[in-house]
Nucleic acid binder design. Structure first.
Lengths: 175, 175
DNA sequence: GGAAGCTACATGACATGTCACCCAATTCGG
DNA sequence: CCGAATTGGGTGACATGTCATGTAGCTTCC
């Protein structure tokens, strides 16, 4: 127990950085939700799910893996997939390797919805995020975010995404 | 996986930066929620509201101003304040200047809850965000985030928050 | 091989957020 | 001053997210 570490204080610079982060995150979330909803009839969570699936081989992913990747509760994912499958965007199909597991699979309609929504979303991201950013700061921003990401993975409560969890610690970090 | 590079959207570097941002935001939100909930019996939205009020003169703020500051829908704020006031954390009081307006006012209990919750939250932020960050990158990160914030304010759909551009959801230095 | 315990999910009750629409006070144009 | 338009806010129905719990398949170990 170090005498001082009990009451952690952020430096003024850190505080301002943190406030800026929170402000950006709140407003950006709002704008993304709004744009997706009105232009593509998708919520941001819908979009995240579609993206994660489209990025996976065969457009399919086991629920636990998908939940970890999205940092969602599994029950949330379960409910959400039920609603998305009711809309025809995804399907549930039993896993080939584990009979208690379920895979979420992107349907053609889901892929089409994603394809239709992506340009508008990317455009928004460019306009809201990158157009106001000094290009000289981009590499530093990227590195900083990747460092924070690694930190959250290492010290956070969520398992590391990607492959099976529960492996021995000491694996090299990856971006 | 991007055969039609005809879309003039994001450069590869921008894409990776964006993905890193989204990953950080998802996991960080999860961790903050979890920590506040288990340690202080507050949700992150609760905490944001308390912080915004505590940062305002008299611990009071008109609903529209508060909603704008938090990037919330007004009806959401209305419902949320109803629940928070049922828990004794805030009160509603009619505005002095405009008889249709309502102010949200921090109660003593609300201020106490905030004071109790802040150190743990700050500790989490330090551990998850800043401890893994190369200090040399901090200034660039801060500037980048401030540029993005300005961009979202300028080109976003939300009105610019009130002049007292004080702190947003976050934490106070605490003495 | 079979009970104990873990893991993968589903589900129902309940908390939270959104949308459409409501009313009252204020403002504005005659 | 009168009435329409605007602004500040509340509300109820419904969409979404969380928590506690239930069930089935896998795994371990004797």
């Amino acid at each position: 127990m170090s005498p001082n570490s009990g009451s952690p204080v952020l430096t003024p610079d850190q505080q301002e950085t943190w406030f800026a982060y929170m402000r950006v995150m709140l407003r950006l979330s709002h704008e993304m939700n709004r744009q997706l909803q009105t232009d593509s009839d998708l919520s941001l969570p819908d979009f995240d799910v579609l993206n994660a699936l489209a990025d996976s081989p065969g457009g399919r992913l086991q629920l636990t893996g998908l939940a970890t990747r999205l940092a969602w509760e599994r029950s949330r994912l379960s409910h959400h997939l039920q609603r998305m499958s009711a809309r025809g965007l995804v399907e549930r199909s039993p896993s080939a390797t584990d009979r208690r597991a379920t895979d979420a699979v992107l349907t053609d309609a889901g892929r089409a919805a994603l394809t239709a929504a992506t340009p508008g979303h990317a455009e928004l991201v460019r306009r809201m995020f990158f157009d106001g950013l000094d290009p000289a700061l981009l590499p530093a921003l990227r590195t900083a975010l990747e460092q924070v990401h690694e930190q959250v993975l290492t010290h956070g409560t969520l398992p590391r995404p990607g492959r099976p969890q529960g492996r021995l610690p000491g694996l090299e970090p990856e971006a």
